[in-house]
């Protein structure tokens, strides 16, 4: 089996079979990362497609570590979106919409899932991305450091604070729910 870096170089040379293989390896993880990071399925879908478009039209030197680089592109696109005027405009409308969605009684498991989504949304993007990459995508700390362009020590500290805040949020929602 070819490694990601070789496969990507072949994609940049226009190899369609390599593209299919690369998409099969990275579409699901990148999409799920963006879903959890943005909390919005439709947006995650758009951003995943944009990530692959960027990867495909890239003209510089191919990266030496493709996995971290692909997550970096996806993460930067999501963060750029959060900074955009469109996001600020849509957010105001979203609050009312979300309140309606979460008030629906759709069973215990669904309620638990929504609670986690809400708790993740309360984390800062810096903390949220570290927790998602480490917990759901099993990236090593040094890989997360590469993706986020921060030292490993900072990643460790963010992970600890993210877990601590999540624990606090979830404990609070349990008290309210009881």
């Amino acid at each position: 089996m070819l490694d990601d870096e070789t496969l990507y170089r072949q994609v940049l040379h226009g190899n369609e079979a390599a593209l299919i293989e690369l998409v099969q390896r990275y579409h699901v993880p990148l999409y799920k990362f963006l879903c959890r990071f943005t909390g919005d399925v439709a947006l995650a879908d758009d951003l995943t497609q944009e990530t692959f478009t960027r990867l495909l039209t890239y003209q510089g030197v191919p990266p030496t570590h493709f996995k971290s680089w692909a997550y970096t592109v996806a993460r930067n696109l999501a963060r750029d979106y959060f900074k955009s005027a469109r996001y600020r405009y849509e957010r105001a409308a979203d609050f009312e919409e979300q309140a309606e969605v979460f008030s629906d009684d759709t069973g215990f498991a669904a309620h638990d899932r929504e609670t986690v989504i809400q708790a993740l949304a309360k984390l800062s993007p810096d903390h949220r991305e570290v927790l998602i990459l480490r917990f759901y995508h099993d990236l090593k700390l040094d890989e997360i450091a590469d993706v986020t362009h921060t030292p490993v020590g900072t990643v460790k500290s963010r992970l600890f604070h993210a877990l601590k805040q999540m624990k606090g949020f979830l404990a609070l929602t349990e008290v309210i729910h009881d």
Binding site: H27, V28, Y31, D112, R113, T115, V116, Y136
Partner: peptide, 12 residues
């Protein structure tokens, strides 16, 4: 609790 957050598979 975190494991409860599953995401549906996208259309590759």
């Amino acid at each position: 609790r975190l494991e409860q957050y599953a995401v549906a598979e996208p259309d590759t």
